[in-house]
Design a protein around this nucleic acid. Structure first.
Lengths: 233, 233
DNA sequence: ATCAAAGGATTGTTGAACAATCCGGAAAAT
DNA sequence: ATTTTCCGGATTGTTCAACAATCCTTTGAT
């Protein structure tokens, strides 16, 4: 349904040897299928609860069922999709309990990352995300405001300089994008957050780590509350 | 090599309907293959760096190559195994940087879990793990000491009552098991930790959360240092 | 109207096939 | 003798086709 006719096969040999020699790891077809689905998930083309049928997706994307299967495994491990044995996979939908759960993870990761301080360059990235948000606000770009906010929190986690922490955060953010669409409609949903972000950034730059951590904690608690009231519950 | 001849097929219909009726989600064959490999990984039968060939594993376990592939995807998402495109999958091996990385995740998660307090039952589970460790020490059971220690940290994370945090911690512990074998040889490797664990548990029961968190942080830092010196660098 | 049986659709798993890629060694060139 | 080139074997990546197991819906019986 409304699936793009993207050419995902591309098994032509053409310039592949050059790519291989340059060690440009060409993502496997399964990976690209997963990417495509991730995109459609983030874009809101595939809404939570939607059933994903192996055969139709395989046809739509011009790949084999087996490959779709591998892509599903990838997405399932990221919790973007849920497998119901013998019934199929469905786009994951966060229930009220999951919202609290996700924020619990964020509190653990983000607060801890702040407490660790981080290199000057990493702090600069946080500042850059704050400025990005300001620009988006000035341009009345709601979409941009949202992504800037995500960049901010990504930069916060990056303070810890941990590959694993980064990827965990990336997953959590991807999960949240899944149900952000409703909320995003409300234009000044993030507007309040702009000031919070800047304040946290200021404290961070000033080396007041405990205060920055405290602010982030409060921020996340308020954010969770807001999310909980927008969604069910 | 040295792979058990476990019967993993079992597609016989016999008593399957009963199981199905009881809604006992029978794990898929791919899942059981993953379980088997996870086991061999934890047991040290498969050492870091070992190459896992699809066809041989498929034969050894009596399943199809495609199924092995799905199992690999699962393990790869848990970082227990690494995929080198077109070259195969290898048992993951933690490099010095990874050790720090893993401990960064643990600091974030465990300290945060402690700061959150947790229900009385959850705290009781922590206490139970401490006692389990004491018993193992009394019995001079090194193996048991190790698992008790893991139970302790699992219980700590469980304080937060977060499904996601639990599964993240489970993965991290699985990763660590991968290279614990060397360390485990040294008998009183954990002996020192026993007292630490109990002290943390005491503080937790007394409601001195900040102190407990502080202790845990120090503990993890010492543990990382020890690991770093046991392994390269 | 309730319940059981039948049918169709989809998933889970297998087996075989083939292209693409990588690795190691033989052959050739310097 | 050392390096380069080339070839062949082995393994992965991907597809296809088939079938059993399971679920969902609809039909049929009480």
């Amino acid at each position: 349904m409304a699936t793009s006719e993207t050419a995902l096969q591309g098994t032509s040999r053409g310039a592949s040897s050059a790519a291989a020699r340059l060690r440009v790891a060409v993502p496997s077809v399964a990976d690209r299928v997963a990417d495509e689905l991730r995109l459609q998930l983030a874009e809101g083309i595939l809404l939570p609860g939607t059933r994903l049928t192996e055969s139709t997706i395989a046809e739509d994307l011009g790949v084999s069922r087996n490959t779709v299967r591998e892509a599903f495994a990838e997405l399932a491990s990221e919790r973007l999709v849920v497998r119901h044995p013998n019934r199929g996979v469905f786009v994951a939908s966060l229930e009220p309990g999951d919202i609290h759960d996700v924020y619990t993870v964020r509190r653990a990761i983000e607060v801890s990352a702040i407490r660790g301080g981080g290199s000057p360059e990493a702090v600069a990235d946080v500042r850059a995300a704050v400025e990005e948000g300001k620009r988006a606000a000035a341009a009345n770009d709601d979409e941009g405001l949202g992504t800037a906010n995500q960049h901010f929190h990504g930069a916060i986690v990056a303070l810890a300089g941990s590959r694993r922490l980064n990827s965990i955060m990336a997953q959590v953010l991807a999960e949240m994008r899944l149900f952000f669409h409703k909320a995003t409609l409300d234009g000044h949903f993030y507007s309040r957050y702009l000031k919070d972000n800047e304040e946290i950034c200021n404290a961070l730059e000033a080396g007041e780590l405990d205060r920055a951590a405290e602010l982030m904690l409060a921020y996340l608690n308020r954010s969770e509350e807001k999310q909980a009231e927008v969604h069910g519950e």
